[in-house]
């Protein structure tokens, strides 16, 4: 029993000590709470929550977090970032789980399903976000430098054997991309009579790693890539010229024999949210910036290893004029 008592005394001592410790600094939580309450009141409750889909690539994160940061700082919104792939994001419009997709590269099938007219009308096009997507065939810079003629598609067959790998069955290997992206490479290879086989990397990470290693080890590699992309600032890939895009040359898909068109990246939003009159609606409507802007923020995230929030906040601070133009 005495041991028990000794334990009890010890415990009491510990309790006393921790309580004493707790006494200091206890103000800060209360203070912040009150401050938050004040802030919420000041915002007047005009802005509700903003559900921002975050699709899994850095450029998208840059746009999403910049818009989100402005909405929080200037409009007092609560922004919920939701890490989702494109398909799932679109599904979320109808249930109110997603309000905004800030960078859409074109999803005809999803538009058909969710736009007014052909689909349930839960989603709508909210105009371009200012970024332009350049999809195409790229090679690592060392290759472009050493064999400049490789940048013309007509010369690709000459090098086909150099591109061969264990995966390409005796032909040259063309590295296809993450299946999320619109790709016609199998048709292009076939229709341009190229001695290549499309091997799908399966993920953006695999493509990036492959290009990085190819540049580092001076290996032959050609594959599907795109701008804006943070990796371009690490290894500036060179684009191979394919027969230029003409209206209609991508129809039907199995007959494609031309380059990818420049893609105007759009904002897609929930119809219900767009009609809610929330101040954040105007912000998203007005949001527009350049590839260069996006690349800057993407670089903060990927190269400087800043968190998405910090990277966005830094850009917002450095570009007050651009931000002002978006505000309602």
């Amino acid at each position: 029993m005495t041991r028990g008592w000794k334990g009890g005394r010890l415990a009491a001592l510990a309790v006393g000590a921790t309580l004493a410790l707790a006494a200091c600094g206890s103000n800060s939580i209360d203070a912040e709470t009150q401050e938050n309450e004040k802030k919420a009141q000041a915002a007047g409750g005009a802005c509700e929550e903003l559900n921002m889909a975050v699709n899994p690539w850095v450029g998208y994160e840059a746009s999403a977090y910049v818009v989100g940061t402005v909405a929080e700082q200037e409009l007092g919104c609560t922004v919920n970032y939701k890490n989702l792939k494109e398909d799932v994001s679109w599904q979320g419009f109808a249930t109110g789980e997603v309000d905004v997709v800030i960078e859409d590269w074109g999803h005809p099938d999803l538009e058909k399903k969710f736009f007014e007219g052909s689909g349930d009308g839960s989603a709508m096009d909210f105009g371009p976000n200012g970024n332009v997507g350049i999809i195409g065939w790229y090679v690592p810079p060392w290759l472009a430098e050493e064999h400049p003629d490789i940048l013309e598609w007509e010369n690709l067959n000459k090098y086909a054997q150099d591109f061969a790998t264990s995966e390409s069955g005796g032909q040259g290997q063309f590295l296809g991309a993450d299946p999320s992206y619109v790709q016609f490479d199998e048709a292009i290879v076939e229709n341009l009579d190229l001695d290549f086989k499309v091997v799908f990397s399966g993920s953006e990470a695999a493509s990036i790693e492959a290009f990085e290693q190819a540049e580092k080890n001076k290996e032959f590699l050609i594959g599907y890539f795109y701008e804006p992309q943070w990796f371009m600032s690490v290894v500036p890939l060179e684009k191979v010229a394919l027969p230029p895009y003409k209206e209609g040359c991508q129809e039907p898909p199995e007959d494609v024999d031309c380059d990818y068109p420049e893609t105007v990246l759009k904002k897609i939003v929930s119809t219900e949210w767009a009609e809610s009159g929330d101040p954040s609606v105007d912000l998203v409507k007005n949001f527009e910036w350049t590839n260069e802007d996006q690349n800057t923020v993407a670089k903060y995230i990927s190269q400087d290893k800043m968190s998405q929030e910090d990277a966005a906040a830094k850009w917002v601070e450095e570009n007050p004029d651009k931000v002002k133009a978006w505000l309602p």
């Binding site: 993450d178 299946p179 399966g202």
Partner: peptide, 18 residues
């Protein structure tokens, strides 16, 4: 996801594109 193609790629494809 790492370039092996086959059924794995098909599954990822189905997951990525509705």
């Amino acid at each position: 996801l790492v370039g092996a193609g086959a059924l794995g790629y098909d599954v990822v494809l189905g997951f990525s594109r509705s």
